[in-house]
Write a protein that binds this DNA or RNA. Structure first.
Lengths: 344, 344
DNA sequence: GTGAAAGCGCTAACAG
DNA sequence: CTGTTAGCGCTTTCAC
């Protein structure tokens, strides 16, 4: 009993420390540290004794203390919109795999598309001294990150660029993808096409709208105000927008949906509609192939992987000036985008 | 310039510390601490000076140091199978929301259904001194967590119970759900029903198989070996299993799919099959309503929320003996499960 | 090959 | 109301 002198203060529910292990094994503190970290310079016999003490005591190194000395946490943070959105799961997982390959852990947090919450989260991660930060921004002013970046937190933005600061960004080609999707509808005979997108504040949303407008203009087609609806992607709003565009004085014959959340609702509304209406959606969706939904697919995993690789390159000292990487999109032809307009 | 004495050692990329802020503001260290933590006992004027110094220096409290003293990290860990699986995204998000309500951050990691990786992850989280741990186990021996639990890490298992240790668990009623789903197929006239599930080692998989067997037995129906296929849920394996069951000497007329991954592949194979085959799947899937896929739905978010609430109750000192909570499932009738067998 | 001493940045305890 | 001292558990440095 007397050989394991316990500290009086049990903050971690009375966890053994290296000091305890050292006492138990009858060695110095530093020797325990060497064994725990696999450093050389310890006899096999000494090591065995230390290992035994570790086992008996159930010792686990306290990484908080370690971090305090080393200055590196081997942790990276990912701030995204909503982990429950099927677009972000694979993205996060891809980041995690890269982090794991570099011996790092990933902490992610959902901003719920709220700029304040994004900031709160990002700064909480910085307070925990993550080595790097990957951000899918909700807000459009990221100057709050300047002190952090200056202090050495590697930072990469994904899916949307940073606002008011210079930083790496890995994006999908929203403009080009949207342009291609809308042009595809036009090529199939449509002249009145509705665009239903996310809030205009969101960069991808604005870019996709721009692609839509460019495609229409390229074809010499007008765009009526009634054909464009931007806003929150909740089903109610989207449903109302779809119905409105189908019933106005100049009803649309096709839709371009600005993201996966929009697409699922549009599909549901159109499923209950008497006549077929064409649709191309931005983002692929599980089972969309079976439903014959034509989409502009982006590779969420590639987005995450690319950003994470960039982050670790920076952490390893490389990188240079902030860069913007744009990944291409793919038109997946499945039927809904090839429906002709009525009477064609 | 002389008022901001910089440390020679720039481990955090030369981050200012409370000491720097104190020097700059011309106050004591503890006063800065008080301001940063919103503690009382500071004049408005002093507070202003400190805030200004914080602003100028870009100071951000180092939570690693704080943790070292306080013994609490305000962080909980979640070990799950794969964040890219649409079942886990909402679960994780639900845990995150509860954590947030308690002022805590969530760290999640994917085990990739590998017991070693699960252990590695869980212990890495413990080394970082998470206050609590939520685990969706891959392995079936969790004795490695005993020292951690004894040391005060609140631990709750979700979706599957712990192996070889006593611990809280929040589960869905896999047995009951499966029983109901298979009984539903039987009620619609099927007598030869195939079961395609995950690896038998996984608790939910075994339970769902048990439910299948019970339903068949209740109806006095035999179960042929050829009608049961357990294993990895990759599309290749599932596809082969489905085809095999459709072409044997006693071909099945209906399938029960053991989880969402299996269901999507079965649906794809059946979509290319000449005659209609009935299907009920465990887990709901996005757009399954439009495809008319009958499922046994479980509420992933409720699972996560319940587990997280349990965790925080424990962290607040409550809880009592380890408990097992079982959440019910819901049969969603959509068409595929109501198809009659051929010739009926 | 091993260990003692110092200190990472913060908070608790106590003194002024 | 404010500041000083000690020390959280670890790694670094340097002496043995």
């Amino acid at each position: 009993m007397a050989d394991t002198a316990r500290r009086p203060d049990h903050r971690y529910g009375n966890r053994p420390t290296m000091k305890d292990v050292a006492a138990r094994a009858g060695v110095g503190l530093k020797t325990v540290s060497r064994v725990v970290n696999g450093e050389p310079g310890v006899t096999a016999e000494t090591e065995r004794r230390v290992q035994a003490a570790i086992e008996v005591l159930g010792f686990r190194r306290n990484d908080s203390a370690r971090v305090l000395r080393k200055g590196r946490t081997a942790t990276v943070g990912l701030v995204l919109e909503d982990l429950a959105d099927p677009f972000y799961g694979p993205l996060s997982r891809a980041v995690e795999e890269v982090a794991r390959a570099h011996g790092a852990l990933l902490v992610n947090g959902s901003s719920a598309e709220d700029p304040d919450r994004e900031q709160e989260l990002a700064l909480a991660l910085c307070a925990r001294r993550v080595d790097g930060l990957i951000v899918i921004p909700s807000g459009d002013d990221h100057r709050y990150l300047e002190p952090e970046i200056r202090a050495g937190v590697a930072t990469v933005f994904v899916d949307r660029p940073a606002g008011l600061i210079e930083a790496d960004a890995v994006l999908s080609d929203s403009f080009g993808g949207s342009l291609e999707g809308v042009a595809h509808l036009i090529a199939h005979g449509h002249r009145r096409i509705g665009f239903i997108g996310d809030r205009p504040r969101i960069h991808t949303s604005a870019e996709r709208l721009r692609g839509y407008r460019a495609a229409m203009e390229d074809a010499g087609l007008p765009v009526r105000d009634a054909w464009v609806a931007l806003g929150p992607t909740d089903p109610g709003r989207v449903r109302a927008a779809v119905r409105g565009m189908l019933t106005g004085p100049e009803p649309v014959t096709a839709f371009f949906a600005g993201n996966n959340r929009v697409t699922v609702t549009v599909v549901r509304v159109l499923a209950g509609h008497p006549r077929p209406v064409a649709l191309v959606g931005f983002d692929d969706i599980e089972l969309a192939d079976l439903l014959g939904i034509t989409v502009i697919a982006q590779d969420a995993a590639a987005l995450g992987r690319t950003a994470a690789e960039r982050l670790f390159r920076r952490l390893e000292g490389g990188g240079g000036a902030p860069e913007r990487v744009v990944l291409g999109t793919t038109l997946l032809v499945r039927g809904s985008g090839e429906l002709p307009p009525p009477g064609a």
